[in-house]
Amino acid sequence: MIKAVNLTLKDESEKPVVSNLSFEIYKNDRIAILGRKSELSTLLCHALAGILQRTHPSYSVSGSILYAGQPIEEIDSHERTNKIAYVPPFADLLISGVKDTVFGEVALSLELTGIERDLIHERVNRILQRFAIEKLSNRDPDELSGGERHKVALAAMIVRAPDVLILDNPSMFLDTTGVNNLLSILRAYNGTIIIADPNPYIWAAIAGRFITIEKSGIVPYDSPAALIHALEKDAVHIDVPSWQELLLMLRQPLIIDTEVTSFRSLGSLRTIIRAMQ
């Protein structure tokens, strides 16, 4: 679906930030970008969203990122944002303020893209229900609390039903409840998710594949098991939890080839560790 071919990015002083990166993202993939620095993961998010040349115009880019076989920066902005949604860390900025109700705000992107009126009502109502904010639908977005605004912003992005959702540091201003809400929404989301967040609680709960940005370069890991194996061998030099901790967080059945499919206690963890050894 999205394919990076020999992507190299150089910053203003011609220092390579990303060199020779090639990987592919498939439909319905859940990918976490784990970075040494959050600027690097933001950079990669922008590249994948096709806005890198506008947000970092002083960087030089070689190689390309293809979406459905087409260079992503060449796709018309309107068409591209219909397919790929980039959620910036300050979700507050996503609320345009043009409409004076939450319903209108969420419906705005659909109105602008010319979707029929009945269909807008249906889709907006459905998304408000899924975010459990239908009670807010007649409130003014400016009067909401931070957490509520974050939800409205996310709803406004997801209502366009993009194929790819790129979340850049979504947990920055979220409390524990906010994180849990975000997780339940993302788990139910039907599409590709790319998430760059330093909070292991978030990415471990969602991602099935990983991209780590290390000093030596960018390393893709195709499964949680691959990441855990690398961690075990001390081959990962970024700030992530130890492999034991990570194993606890990755409550996914696909981790390793054992009969154990889920585990919640230290006891079952020990079983798995033993099985891995």
Binding site: I51, T55, H78, T81, L93, G104, L108, L112, G114, A156
Partner: peptide, 21 residues
Amino acid sequence: SNRAIALEMRGFTATTRRTTL
């Protein structure tokens, strides 16, 4: 400048004729 990215993602660059609620 950051808001500009957000607004682009919200469909502010759409060229189709808009519908209204």
